[in-house]
Each structure stands twice: as structure tokens, then as C-alpha cells.
Amino acid sequence: MFECALIQGELFRKLIASVQDLVQDGNFMCDANGISLQGMDSSHVALVALALKKEGFVEYRCDRDVTLGINFANLAKMLKCMGAKDRLSIRAQDEGDSASFVFESEDSSRVSNFELKLMQIDQEQLGVPETQYKAVIRMPSSEFQRICKDLSAIGDTVSISVTKEAVKFSVGGDIGSGDMSLRQSESGDVDGDDSEKVMIELEEPVQQNFALRYLNNFTKATALSKTVTLSLGTDMPLVTEYKMDNLGSIRYYLAPKIDE
């Protein structure tokens, strides 16, 4: 038996919305520690990895490891029926062919029950090795979203270059070119919200090119976290990570474009 409950069901809906444009279906792997999901887009350019810790749930019980094969568009249809402040419970039998989703309003005056048919998904998992990245940038997620959206009106590819002082996003297209630089926030600045700062950890300067179409896709997760972390290396996939307070994180990996 697998059973879990989230006070903020809305978070789960946002998570599914952050995944469903990139991958159509995937396996929720549930074990005693939490839930994980990995999926690659059909062109093998981007990978999404979700890791939810059991500590983030108000209830969590997983007697035996279970794999829930889920079509995200279908799940999203059911989650659409959930109220913004509803509590969400998910239940599945060990060998069942469906999972139940229960939405309960704050005052328990409305309870909704949905059964989602599960799929058998034959999906191999990619092994992502532990990597020491050359540059790690933490910035407001809304700022990253705005940059990706605005630059994609000008070109298809963004060049991200990082120095100790700043991270620069450059774009070029038929109409011309441009760049936007974000300076590292002053470290002595004790005032203000940490989530609004730009922090750069740098081992050595790095520059890589990426398709804006995918980055724009990743920014669907902006609603999940005030900050985003970008990890870059030379000729390495970019890791874009959104951390949710104590629930876990969603990570996107994007293969670079390489000059040939």
C-alpha cells in the first residue's frame, strides 16, 4: 500500500504542470524515503528529474516500493478539479492498475475522489553522475523566467557566460543581437531578501550555448520556488534546479549546443 498526503495540493498540480510539456508520461517511483520521477523529452535534449522527500508530506506510507506509471496530461485533467487550497491525498495498492486522488477543501466541506488508470511504462533511467560544476548561479526564478522569455523573441539560442562578477545572457537573431547581465549581489548587503540576490560560485569562467525553447519550458517551475540555481560546466549539460522548501526539488538537465 502506498499513501501520501500534501496540505497544499496546489504544489503537486504545479509540479505536474512543470513536467507535462516536456514529457508525456513517466513512472513515479515511490519508496520509503519519497517519490522520484525521471523523464526525457522525445528528442533526448532535456531531462527532468523530480525528487520529493517524505518529510514534505503530512502523511507518508510506503510498505513496498511501488511504481506508478502516469500519463501527465490525464493526471492534469483530474488535478484541474482540485480547489486552490485543497489538501491532496494519493493512494495506490501494491499491484493495482489505478491510483486514487482525493481533494479535500480546508473545512472538509467538499471532498472529491478520482481514480486515474495507470500505465505500464517501459522507461529506462539515465544515470547522471555527480559532477563538480565550474559555475553555480543562484538567482530569482522570476528574473530567469523573464530573461528567457524576452530573449526568445530575438533568437533561438542563448549564450550563458559566467565570470566572478556577473552572469551574462546573450542572444542573436535576424533582427540583431543583445545581452543582459546580472551582477553578483554585494556580499556585505545584510538587508533585503536573500531570494532576490544573485549569487555566483565560480571555479573558472564558463560559456555555453543553449536552446531557449527548452529553457522557457523549464521556467514553468517558477511558481514552485522563488529562486533557481543554474549549474554549468564546459561541454556539460546545464542543470536548472528549483528547490521547494522541505518537499524536495525539480531539476532540468539540458544538453548544450556546441560550435562545430
Binding site: 526525457m40 528528442s43 533526448h44 535534449v45 532535456a46 531531462l47 529506462e124 533511467q125 539515465l126 544515470g127 547522471v128 553522475p129 539560442t157 550555448n209 536552446a211 556539460m236 549539460p237 538537465y253 544538453a255 548544450p256 549546443k257 556546441i258 560550435d259 562545430e260
Partner: peptide
Amino acid sequence: VDVQCDLFFFYNFR
């Protein structure tokens, strides 16, 4: 010319 790499170039199936 920018060539889009794919993830299999970097990662293998587990």
C-alpha cells in the same frame, strides 16, 4: 554552426 548535442552524449542508461 551550433550543433545541438543530445543527452546520451553525456549520460548513459543506468
